[in-house]
C-alpha cells in the first residue's frame, strides 16, 4: 500500500515538472503576468511615486496599505483567540503530563544561544529596515525577532524567556504595533489627506512627497514587526505549555 501511494505522488510530480516548462522565462517582460495593465502600472509608477526600489514592499505597505493593516489585525486577533482559549483552561501547578521528564538546560546550547541571539536580533532589525531595497519587511523581520525569543525559551526554559518578555508586555507591544500603523494612517488623515495617504506627511517631515511615502512605509513596517514579534512569542509560550506558562517544551 505504501508503494502504491507513491504512484500518484510521482505522477503528479512529473505533471508539475512537465507543466513548469511552459512557464515564461525568469524576468521576461512579455510574460502575461507583467503584461497586464495593473502590473505595468505598478512597474512603471512605483519608482516615480515612492522612490522605493522594491516594488513588492511598495505595493504591500503603500498601494494596498489598508489590506496589510487588517492582515496585522488578523495576526493580533489570532494571538488574542489563543490566549482567550488557553488562559484559564488549565490550573497552574497542576499535574505534569505522564510522558514528561525533567531536563536541565544544556551547557553548550545555552552558551551558544547566548552568543547567537544578539546577532539574530540585529539581523532581524536589518531585515525589517532594509525591506525597501531588498526582500524583507515587517512580517519577515518580526518572525526572525520572535524566533530569537523562542530560542531563549527553548534552550533555558519558558520562565527565563518570560522574565525578559512577559506576556502582559507581549500583548502591549502587539497592540502598540497596530496603534503605530493606524496612527500613521489617522495622522495623514488629520494633515488633509485620506486614511493611510502617506504623501501628506510631507508637511511635518522635511522631505519631498515621494520620500515622505518612503519614510512612512518604514514606520508602518515597524508597527507590523512589533505585532508579529509579540504574537509569535505569545503563541509559542501558550501553545507549548498548554496555557500554564511554565516548563514549556
Amino acid at each position: 500500500m505504501k508503494a502504491a501511494s507513491m504512484v500518484p505522488v510521482f505522477l503528479v510530480g512529473f505533471l508539475l515538472v512537465f507543466a513548469a516548462t511552459d512557464f515564461p522565462e525568469w524576468g521576461n517582460p512579455q510574460s502575461p503576468a507583467s503584461d497586464s495593465p495593473v502590473s505595468s502600472h505598478f512597474i512603471g509608477k512605483t519608482g516615480v511615486d515612492t522612490e522605493v526600489p522594491n516594488m513588492v514592499t511598495a505595493v504591500l505597505a503603500d498601494y494596498r496599505g489598508f489590506d496589510t493593516m487588517f492582515e496585522t489585525v488578523v495576526v493580533f486577533i489570532a494571538g488574542m483567540a489563543v490566549l482567550a482559549i488557553l488562559k484559564n483552561s488549565v490550573k497552574k501547578g497542576s499535574v505534569r503530563r505522564d510522558h514528561e521528564v525533567d531536563a536541565e538546560p544544556d551547557l553548550i546550547v545555552t552558551n551558544m544561544v547566548r552568543l547567537i541571539v544578539p546577532v539574530i536580533q540585529i539581523f532581524a532589525f536589518y531585515v525589517l529596515a532594509h525591506g525597501h531595497v531588498s526582500p524583507g519587511g515587517g512580517f519577515q523581520g518580526g518572525v526572525i525577532m520572535g524566533a530569537s525569543f523562542i530560542l531563549i525559551a527553548l534552550s533555558w526554559d519558558l520562565e527565563t524567556a518570560l522574565a525578559r518578555f512577559s506576556l502582559n508586555r507581549c500583548m502591549g507591544v502587539a497592540a502598540a504595533g497596530i496603534l503605530i500603523y493606524a496612527g500613521i494612517g489617522i495622522f495623514s488623515m488629520f494633515l488633509g489627506g485620506e486614511f493611510l495617504d502617506y504623501a501628506e506627511l510631507e508637511r511635518v517631515l522635511p522631505v519631498s512627497r515621494e520620500m515622505a511615502r518612503y519614510h512612512a512605509m518604514l514606520g508602518v513596517e515597524i508597527g507590523v514587526g512589533c505585532t508579529v514579534t509579540a504574537i509569535m512569542f505569545a503563541l509559542y509560550a501558550n501553545l507549548s505549555s498548554e496555557g500554564k506558562l511554565e516548563g514549556g517544551l
Binding site: 510522558h99 514528561e100 521528564v101 531536563a103 544544556d106 527553548l154 534552550s155 517544551l249
Partner: peptide, 8 residues
C-alpha cells in the same frame, strides 16, 4: 532535540 530531551 529539546522535545526529545523533555519526554520519555
Amino acid at each position: 532535540s529539546r522535545y526529545l530531551n523533555r519526554t520519555i
